[in-house]
Each structure stands twice: as structure tokens, then as C-alpha cells.
Design a protein around this nucleic acid. Structure first.
Lengths: 332, 332
DNA sequence: CTGAAAGCGCTTACAG
DNA sequence: CTGAAAGCGCTTACAG
């Protein structure tokens, strides 16, 4: 009967008597509405889908944490699909989410705006994080990779480091690409004549460790190593220390992301603070408002600011890292 | 028409001609079945709900990662509800999941078996992880906390450490409780007369760091510190090193969990390996089989074995840590 | 203020 | 092999 629905949902008018009787019976019978039936009528699942390439490491737990907090405060549920290694898997993940959600939060190196347009009806709101979208057809969030990487290398140069190596993230990853680009530009402009030295990594500690050993094996010893994320920096730190080198005295080190652990490793890691959970929360807020008012939803691309966090791992600056391009610097 | 459904789902018989026409049309129209309507008929959502207290740190990302991999291979979706700080919030999280899932994976210090029985219809399969269930009404997974903590303290004693402090996790947390218990028992039996020294923490690096400073402030300097998880051990490491102490020469350190970062901090962290993602995967497998054949689902409690992982942070053992109670020891 | 009725998008016996 | 029909559990105009 309709009054039951009205009482349960607090929508429409019901006599107090009926209301209490319904609520009491519902409680007694452990009644829980079937959300499938509900969303069939309301056209809302109150669920948003999240597509992530992996869940490995603190970056993703921070991201999900931020998304989760924002979602909870809006009464939205999170359907998570992570761990896909190529476009096919990403496509499948997408497919299986589409019929179950009101909107999609996508972060994937294997997906781009066009890919999404081809397989998702345009009425489904989507927000992208660190995901390529040449045609600017979607709302996106990007970390300020290029400038921050530039600023970090400039800061390292300002600390007196002349040869600076870079441990890059995966080739396919747009964050990784932009960070290399920033590294290269800074090297060219701030240290003219200095040789580039790029080692490959894949954003895991393991790969940072391997890169560190590789570096050592070449016999070259750069003044500083700038890793494209904190996990690789931590792996590299381990390799360097294992080889008897002291950080920062013998070799300086910097990372990217400012994952929670960064300030607790020894020496504390100089890095670029991304405010990962904030970014996740903002992306969700954006998606939620797109779901509520689809008409006003214009695709805009937002750059998430980042700041240098100067800790012990990079040594003391010889001169202040004053550079018009540099992100705000903070000593912690 | 029924044939469409049959063609799309590959169930029942359809002419090849119809099959291709349907599939082609579906692709062209970007058709995606409405999962709500589907589950209304099939009584299956192919979704399982996960209740977690928080998402902070690598423990939870590893756990979810393991669950996710297992879920994917079974075609199950994951609805995640984390971040609840008390029983009320946990109850709400539960309520909002119940109507949407085929089963529940619950890990929460604020929930127990009875609490669940009161608000979840008994036909909904539930698997517990590190969650109290005195009446043994649910299937549960528990880390072998007590024995492993005992073994770790015995190992530290075997390394020659006489005074051993413990940084405990939150009081409400059953893992934390059992680890303190193991610590106490080992101290009593392996180092008779040695004083207990328990510092409070909450499983975050920050709290480990604070505990480390607190320890230093007392003026006592134990030979070793055993933290109830790796994150606190890493925080403590930072506090100790900051104060000019060397680990393990001046003070030994051990953690619990073996999160991925544990082997990359310097010195590498001696710890108890829990195989977090495995545990998550096994819990999901158990839940999945309960969903498939509810009749055979008997509540059983499983203890997940753990092993000591001896790395540099605890110093070299003076004598082999041979103890009948001890978990298998591995040097890495 | 309330209940009967239609309908959301599917699946599944059922009759043909 | 296929289509008409019923029904899953809800919500929402609608008439009373």
C-alpha cells in the first residue's frame, strides 16, 4: 500500500498513527527496501562507480578515502572497480558498472575521453581524474604535474645539486609523462648543459628500488634523484642506503604525491604535496552536482594545485628557490 | 521480447539470425541492461558490500586489493562503505548496504556478531574479518595475533633485548588487544621479571611517532620497541632517528602486518607477515560460496597464519629463536 | 489522508 | 524456436 512507502520515505502526508505502525512493523520485520525496485522507479541508484587502474599503495587509498568521505556526506554509495591492466579490461569494468550507477569517476591510463564517448551513453555524468581527454568533452581533474616537477628540480638545483636523475613512472601514465616533461624543462633552463638521466619505473616501491640499484650500477653518482612518486623515492632510498650512501649528504632525494608515509621515512622525504584525498573529494562533489543538475553540467578541466614540501631528504638550499614558475614552497 | 533477453544473456535457445541482430542492435544503441530490474527477477545483485572502519593506510588498500581481485574473477562488484567511527555509524553503513548486496564482508571494531544478528536478516550471508563474535554465529577470519606477537617478543628476547616496550593499537580493536596479550605473555614467560611498558597508539604513523617521542621523554630507553602495526613502527622509527638514536644499534624495532612499505624503510622493518590481500581474497571466496550454496554455509572461524619476517630493524639474534609456540621465521 | 492501479525494465515459465 | 503474459518490489499520480 502506498502509505507504507510514504511513511517509510517521509514523502507525502500520512497520519501519525499509520506512520508509527508502519515504522514499528518495518523495524520488527527487519524490513529493508529493495534498492533495485526503488531505482527502477526513481531512476536513481544513489551509487557512483569508480574505475581505478590499481589499488596498490597509499595514493589510491587516500584517493578513495577522500571520495568516500564526500560520498557519505551526500548519501552516495561507492562501487569500486580497480585493477585493470589494459584498455579491454578497463572497457569491461566500465560496461559492468554503467547499468548500476548514477555517475562515473574514472582514473585510468588506458582510457580517454573518446574511448568513453564510444561506449557510454552521453547522459551518464562522468568525471575524469588524471585521464587524457584531448577533445575536452569531459570534466577532468589534473594534478599540476609539469609546474610542480619543474619547481622541484629548480629547488634541487637551488640546493646546489648539479646532476639530477629522474625515476619516471609508466610511459602510458599521463602524470608520469608530465613529470618527466617538467624535469626536462627545468634541467634545460635551470642547469644548462646538465645531462638528462631518466630511469624507468612503474610507480611501485619495488621499481624505485630497482632504479636505485641500476643507478648505482652505472657508476655515475648524481647529486640528486627526483622520483616521479613517493613510493619509488622510498624504494630508491632503500637501495641507496643499502649501498652505504647517506641521504641527503651523499645524494639528495625527492618524491611526488606526499603520501602520508613520506614524512615518516628517514630522512623525511622532500616531495610535492598533491592533497590526494581533497582531489578525490572535489571530483566526487563535481560529479554529484552533475547528477543533480545535468543541464548545467559543462565540461571543464580543473588543475589541482600542488606545493613543494621541503624536508630533510634533499639537503639544505644554498639559495632560496625563488622562481616565478615554482609552486608555493613549504618547509615541514 | 523474450528472445532479446535470451540472446543477450546467452540463456535459452535463439536462432543465430536473431542472435546477431539483437547483439548488433544492442551494440549500436549502447544498450546496457538495468541491473535493478535484473536483480528484481533474479534475486541477485552480484554485488557484495564491504564495511571497513577506515581507509587510512596500506593495510586497507591491500585488503581491498585482495578482495577486489577475488571478486573480479567471480564477476562480483564491490560496494564499499568505510570510515565509520562508532557503532551508530557502522549500523547506518550496514543498513544502507543491506538492500543492495548479495552478501556482506564486515571488518569493524564497533560491530560484533550479536549486533549484526539484530539488524540483518539471517538469510544474508556475512563474513567477518577481525570482528568479535562471541556466540560464533558467523563465519570469521582472524589474524593469528596472539601467537605472532608472542613469537615476535620471544624473537626480540632471543636477539638479546631485555627491556621491550610495546606500542599498542586502539583499545576497542580486537587485533590490538590480542597483540598486547601476546606481548604480555611473552614478556612474562621469556623474560621473567622484565617490566611491561605499553604505550598507546591508534594504528596511524602519527600515533607511532607520538609514542616514540613519549618514550624518549620518559628517559627510559628500552632495548627494543614492538609496535602493534607497521605504520606505528614507521612513525616511531622517525621519532627515534630524529632524536639521534640509531636503529637497531641503539634501539631495536619491530612492527606487525608487513605492509608493502615495511621492507623499503631504512632500516628494513622486522615484522609479522599477515598476507593481507590473501586474507581479503579468502574472505571473499568464502562469502561467494556462501551466496552460491547457502544451505552448506556453516559458521566457521578461521585463523589466518602469520610468520615472522626478520629484517634489519631488530638487530641480529644472539641465539636462534627456536620456540615451540613461535610462527615460522623467515629472514629477508 | 489513503488505497487501487499503473508502470519502471527485466526474466522466466508457458503456450504455441 | 519464439512471443505474450505475469510478476519481481517499489513509487507516484490519481481518484476518492
Amino acid at each position: 500500500m502506498a502509505s507504507v512507502s510514504r511513511a517509510l520515505n517521509g514523502t507525502g502526508v500520512v497520519t501519525e498513527a499509520i506512520r508509527t505502525r508502519v515504522l514499528e512493523a518495518a523495524a520488527r520485520l527487519q524490513y529493508v527496501p529493495n534498492s533495485g525496485a526503488q531505482s527502477l522507479m526513481t531512476r536513481r541508484t544513489h551509487t557512483i562507480g569508480i574505475v581505478l587502474p590499481t589499488l596498490y599503495g597509499e595514493f589510491f587509498s587516500e584517493l578513495i578515502r577522500g571520495i568516500d568521505i564526500a560520498a557519505r556526506s551526500r548519501g552516495l554509495h561507492l562501487l569500486i572497480s580497480s585493477t585493470h591492466c589494459d584498455a579491454t579490461e578497463a572497457g569491461n569494468a566500465l560496461q559492468s558498472l554503467i547499468g548500476r550507477v548514477d555517475g562515473l569517476l574514472v582514473m585510468s591510463p588506458y582510457v580517454d575521453g573518446r574511448f568513453l564517448q564510444e561506449r557510454v551513453r552521453s547522459s551518464l555524468p562522468i568525471v575524469l581524474i588524471s585521464t587524457v581527454d584531448i577533445d575536452h568533452t569531459h570534466t577532468s581533474f589534473y594534478v599540476d604535474n609539469y609546474s610542480s616537477a619543474y619547481a622541484m628540480v629548480a629547488h634541487l638545483a637551488g640546493c646546489g645539486h648539479r646532476t639530477i636523475a629522474h625515476i619516471a613512472g609508466p610511459d602510458v601514465n599521463v602524470d608520469a609523462q608530465e613529470r618527466v616533461r617538467g624535469y626536462r624543462a627545468a634541467l634545460n633552463r635551470e642547469l644548462p648543459g646538465a645531462a638528462e638521466f631518466v630511469l624507468r619505473g612503474d610507480f611501485t616501491e619495488e621499481s624505485g628500488y630497482r632504479a636505485g640499484r641500476e643507478l648505482l650500477a652505472t657508476g655515475m653518482r648524481p647529486d640528486a634523484v627526483f622520483a616521479a612518486n613517493d613510493m619509488m623515492a622510498i624504494g630508491c632510498l632503500c637501495a641507496l642506503t643499502e649501498a652505504g650512501l647517506r641521504v641527503p649528504q651523499d645524494i639528495a632525494l625527492a618524491g611526488f604525491d606526499d603520501i602520508p608515509t613520506a614524512r615518516f621515512v628517514v630522512p623525511a622525504l622532500t616531495t610535492v604535496r598533491v592533497r590526494i584525498s581533497d582531489m578525490g573529494g572535489r571530483a566526487l562533489d563535481r560529479l554529484a552536482s552533475a547528477i543533480e543538475s545535468p543541464a548545467q553540467f559543462q565540461p571543464v578541466s580543473e588543475t589541482v594545485p600542488a606545493e613543494l614540501i621541503i624536508r630533510a631528504s634533499c639537503g639544505t638550499p644554498a639559495r632560496p628557490a625563488g622562481n616565478p614558475r615554482s609552486a608555493p614552497v613549504q618547509r615541514v
